[in-house]
Design a protein around this nucleic acid. Structure first.
Lengths: 222, 222, 222, 222
DNA sequence: AATGAATGAGAGTTCATTCAT
DNA sequence: CATGAATGAACTCTCATTCAT
């Protein structure tokens, strides 16, 4: 009578240490952190409260002192992460430099940010289909915001002639999707800055207006 | 005592036809088809054998005549899908046209293919890192094959000067990731062919070698 | 870390026997019966589904094949019991004999009935305060019906002079309360018929009009 | 109530204590009182220590300074109540007036007493057979005392010819049961004294010998 | 082959009780 | 004395899997 266990690789999130007695981070933070670690690598239903508790080094009941339910815990982790992102973006003062420059910087920043927060990226990037309403809405909202932000940039570029005319939304999804895959799948053995540079260069070039100056450079399109 | 239910909309995939007595497709095929429909839109754990059975119009016990376990059923659906893809690609005789042309065609074909098989795309695109070993391996293998295929093309292009020099793997992930997002997120109200054309043009341009004539942008073409 | 166990005497309702393979009574009936046995002697929360299952000789999960939840099981037991009563009362054709006679008979019948169904009486008589709405309503309705039935009789008697004038509701509660206690507490070592006779005689006498002198005999009737 | 702590003054010489100005009663009394309020209206298991603590305005841990366990707390509340009753009855010096008079008075007093202590009545009346051993014994003892008290009266009356001959125990249960129901169920809109008068009159009449009227009505019943 | 009633391990959640502060 | 965060056993309910028919 096998069960449904799943639990792919049992990340075995080394209790994050019982944190030296003078545990600086609050228990709540610890639970959130360990929860993120688990939810980022396994589907929602495969993460049991028992394991979260074990990972956080607390008793199961303790989880319910800080969160009303598993759902609530998950949502808390999620919004916690989104807040982190919001803060990060807020600090990204966007000067009124040229669009191309702004887009390049936005891409580079995203790469930088997610590079330091792989778990969060995994959690958010997760295509958990048809999650419970609340969860989905949260992620969807965040994703939409990101999409809108990039779409606005691309649109401006197209309007001003900095970018080749086309569908801004399509371009945005191409960029963000590429970014996503690069961060999640691409096993870079190179410094992240290089990756950021090369990727953003590619994307900008993808958007650049036709440049067949002397005609011969025309992408021999058919 | 809230439970875990999930399964927001309960796709309720109307028995895929009650297949009148003269059911042409074998019971096994029907189960696989209905299973795909369910697994594509809900997390593994949210799909119960009860619902698969109901969707396929068979008794629960019958599932176990054809598949050893839920895991096995899922895996069969998966490899069934992957085989479909393999066949599709195999039929894509790749002539020895120019690399650019071959890449463009590969992208277009992928878009075409997944467009007709949204369920399969969802199933495959749906969270990779979250699965049990066996499943993961299957998907990973398939993905690797795809990555290798594209990487080879890009590499060739870079070697032959058709593409700007760079990291072929990075470029590949950018392309496939973009493709993935465009197919899953981008709500196109345009014919899929147009999407394919615009997207592949973007990607090819992203790869195109430096265009020296960065002669001032020209809004008007000549 | 003691728990809340309760479980007073652990009635240990000997699985009612696994009932010979050719179990005549359906599994559902068996569960209802064993459930009644338990719920009649212990407070709702002290009865665990585990114990119901054990008592009925089935697995825990089986309970949920027949009943949606513990609450539902309880309610089913309850309404099942109430239905039994309704049937019993329905069969009690109430001829238009004199009020006194009808009241006497109603009391005797109630005693008879509950004597054979101690468990049911316990279940219904239980003053479980503040039960969940649904449960309470069911019991309350039944109780109200009983009260109304008796009250009507008493009222008629008072109107027609068969009974001493007074508050019919008060009298009814006195009668039913007495009946309840007699059945639940009084450890009779006498045939129940005798108890019924003596008790109903007492109650009728309690209601009889003042009988100071042989003055006016109850007007009509034998 | 054991342990006559008798620290009623407790002028709270030290930290003015947060106790609301009028906090004359000791913390222990407060807990007992609030506990009674809760246990009287909800089944034992539904009353959580959290809620008792909250109701009493103390921390949960504090409860365990005064009571060993939830069970113990409940038992203390119970015996506290029973003692109150004992005191009340003790003060009811029963003169050697006629039996009928004494019985009438006993009934009236009970009604009076419980009328002023509805909570206590509920607690005691509330499901007897459903409790753990210890509790059951306490209540049973108390009830038995009550039953014995009334039974003795009735018996005396029967012996002396004041009451019709019969089973004193049966009569007692009828009386006490009626009393119970009248107090718990009967929604009187009349002064309690009237209720007491009418009810005790009924009960006395129920017991009265046939005498007077149709003289030889002696059990000629068949 | 096909069924679906039955099973029981395991998940989420509660709450009496403890104990460091 | 008082507190309330922490604990974990035990409860309700689910669902993959089995097996008699």
């Amino acid at each position: 009578m096998k069960r449904d266990h799943e639990t792919p690789e049992r990340i075995s999130a080394a209790p994050l240490s019982a944190s030296p007695p003078g545990s600086r981070i609050s228990k709540r933070e610890r639970i959130l952190g360990c929860g993120l670690r688990l939810f980022a690598y396994e589907p929602y239903q495969a993460v049991t409260m028992d394991r979260v508790a074990e990972a956080a080094g607390v008793a199961k009941g303790t989880l319910y002192l800080y969160f009303q339910s598993k759902e609530d815990l998950y949502l808390e982790i999620l919004s916690d992460g989104l807040e982190t992102i919001a803060r990060a973006y807020a600090s990204t003062v966007n000067p009124n430099s040229p669009v191309k420059e702004r887009l390049r910087r936005a891409i580079a920043l995203s790469i930088q940010f997610y590079n330091e927060r792989r778990d969060l990226l995994r959690l958010l990037a997760t295509e958990e289909p048809r999650m419970a309403q609340a969860r989905n809405r949260l992620i969807q909202d965040w994703r939409d915001r990101g999409v809108r932000f990039f779409t606005a940039l691309v649109e401006e570029g197209m309007r001003t002639g900095a970018f080749r005319t086309g569908d801004p939304a399509l371009a945005t999804h191409a960029i963000l999707g590429g970014l996503r895959s690069v961060m999640l799948q691409y096993e870079a053995r190179r410094p992240i800055e290089e990756v950021a540079t090369e990727f953003s260069r590619m994307m900008l070039q993808a958007l650049s207006p036709d440049i067949h100056c002397n005609g011969r450079r025309r992408n021999s399109h058919s």
